[in-house]
Computed example of a mutant assay.
Amino acid sequence: MALVMIVIRDMADRFHGFLSSTMLEVAPNVFVSPRMNQGARERVWQVLTDWHGNIPQGSAVMVWRDLNAVGGVGISHLGDPPRELIEADGMWLVRRRTSS
Rank of each mutant, 00 (worst) to 15 (best):
M1R: 08
A2L: 05
A2Q: 13
A2D: 15
L3V: 12
L3E: 13
V4N: 02
M5W: 03
I6F: 04
R9K: 06
R14L: 07
R14N: 09
R14F: 11
R14C: 08
F15M: 04
F15V: 03
H16N: 09
H16F: 10
H16I: 11
H16E: 07
G17K: 02
F18L: 08
F18M: 06
F18Q: 01
L19K: 01
S21E: 08
S21G: 15
T22V: 13
T22N: 12
T22P: 00
M23P: 08
E25G: 05
E25T: 04
V26Q: 00
V26E: 02
V26Y: 02
A27G: 01
P28T: 07
N29A: 12
N29I: 00
F31D: 08
V32F: 01
S33Q: 04
S33Y: 02
P34L: 11
P34A: 10
R35I: 03
R35P: 00
R35W: 05
M36E: 10
M36T: 10
M36V: 11
N37H: 12
Q38S: 14
G39K: 13
A40M: 09
A40I: 04
R41I: 03
R41A: 14
R41D: 03
E42H: 04
E42G: 00
R43M: 11
V44D: 02
W45Q: 06
Q46F: 02
Q46T: 07
V47Y: 12
L48Q: 05
L48E: 07
T49A: 06
T49N: 03
T49P: 00
D50L: 08
D50M: 04
D50I: 05
H52Y: 15
H52S: 05
G53Y: 01
G53W: 01
G53S: 13
N54G: 10
N54A: 10
I55Q: 04
I55V: 14
I55D: 15
I55W: 04
P56H: 00
P56Y: 01
Q57H: 08
G58N: 09
S59D: 08
S59C: 11
A60I: 13
V61P: 00
V61C: 10
V61G: 07
M62G: 09
M62S: 13
M62F: 02
W64M: 06
R65M: 09
R65E: 13
L67D: 14
L67G: 12
A69N: 12
V70L: 04
V70F: 00
G71P: 09
G71L: 04
G71R: 01
G71C: 05
G72V: 06
G72M: 09
G72Q: 10
G72L: 08
G72D: 08
G72R: 09
V73R: 04
G74F: 08
G74R: 03
G74H: 04
I75L: 15
S76D: 11
H77V: 09
L78H: 04
D80T: 11
D80H: 06
P81E: 08
P81Y: 00
P81V: 14
P82S: 06
P82Q: 11
R83F: 05
R83A: 09
R83V: 14
R83S: 05
R83M: 14
E87Y: 00
A88K: 13
A88Q: 14
D89Y: 01
D89H: 02
D89W: 00
M91F: 12
L93D: 02
L93A: 01
V94Q: 12
R96T: 11
R97P: 02
T98K: 14
S99R: 15
S99I: 10
S99P: 11
S99N: 13
S99E: 14
S100K: 14
S100D: 13
